[in-house]
Amino acid sequence: QVLVIRIKIPNSGAVDWTVHSGPQLLFRDVLDVIGQVLPEATTTAFEYEDEDGDRITVRSDEEMKAMLSYYYSTVMEQQVNGQLIEPLQIFPRAC
C-alpha cells in the first residue's frame, strides 16, 4: 500500500513524499526526510491533525504507529465513500 506523506513547510507550501512501505515506516525515517526538506531546521518531532483538527505530536515509533493506523482508517472511509484519498499531512516541529 502506497502512502503519500505531505510535509508542510512553514510559510512556503508543502512537499509530497511517496512511501512504498508505509506500515513499516519508522519515526527516524520520517525525521531523515524532513531533514532533507528543511536542512536548516533541527526537527525533533512532527505533528498531524486528528479528526477533530487537534494537533497530535509524534516523537517515537509507538506514536508513529498510532498516527499510521489513524490515517489508514480514514483512508478506508474515504475509499468506501468514493472520495479522493488525501495525503497524510505532517507538520515538522523544531524543538
Rank of each mutant, 00 (worst) to 15 (best):
Q1A: 06
Q1I: 13
Q1W: 07
V2Q: 14
V2C: 08
V2W: 04
V4Q: 15
V4L: 12
I5P: 00
R6W: 02
I9N: 08
P10F: 04
S12E: 15
S12Q: 15
A14E: 12
A14T: 14
V15T: 06
V15M: 08
V15K: 06
D16Y: 00
D16L: 02
D16N: 07
W17K: 14
W17F: 09
W17I: 09
V19S: 06
H20Q: 14
H20M: 10
H20F: 08
S21V: 10
G22E: 14
P23C: 14
P23S: 11
P23F: 09
P23D: 14
Q24E: 12
Q24N: 07
Q24M: 06
L25V: 08
L26D: 09
L26Y: 03
F27Y: 07
F27S: 02
F27Q: 03
R28F: 09
R28G: 13
D29P: 02
D29C: 01
V30D: 02
L31V: 08
D32A: 08
I34R: 00
I34Y: 04
G35D: 15
Q36R: 13
Q36P: 00
V37T: 06
V37E: 05
L38Y: 15
L38D: 07
L38V: 09
E40C: 09
E40M: 12
A41M: 12
A41N: 13
T42M: 13
T43D: 08
F46L: 02
F46T: 05
E47G: 02
E47M: 04
E49Y: 15
D50Y: 11
E51W: 08
D52W: 11
G53N: 04
G53I: 00
R55E: 00
R55M: 09
I56R: 09
I56T: 06
I56H: 12
T57S: 09
V58S: 03
R59W: 13
R59H: 13
R59N: 10
R59Y: 08
D61M: 02
D61K: 02
E62N: 10
E63H: 05
E63R: 04
M64W: 04
M64D: 03
A66M: 13
A66C: 13
A66N: 13
A66Q: 14
A66S: 12
L68P: 01
L68K: 04
S69P: 02
S69Q: 13
S69M: 08
Y70C: 05
Y71T: 02
Y71V: 01
Y71Q: 03
Y72F: 10
Y72L: 06
S73V: 05
S73P: 01
T74Q: 12
V75P: 02
V75Q: 10
M76I: 12
E77A: 09
E77Q: 10
Q79N: 12
V80Y: 11
V80A: 13
N81F: 09
N81A: 05
G82V: 06
Q83S: 14
Q83R: 11
I85N: 07
E86M: 11
P87K: 12
P87M: 05
I90M: 03
F91V: 06
P92R: 01
R93A: 13
A94R: 09
A94Q: 12
C95R: 13
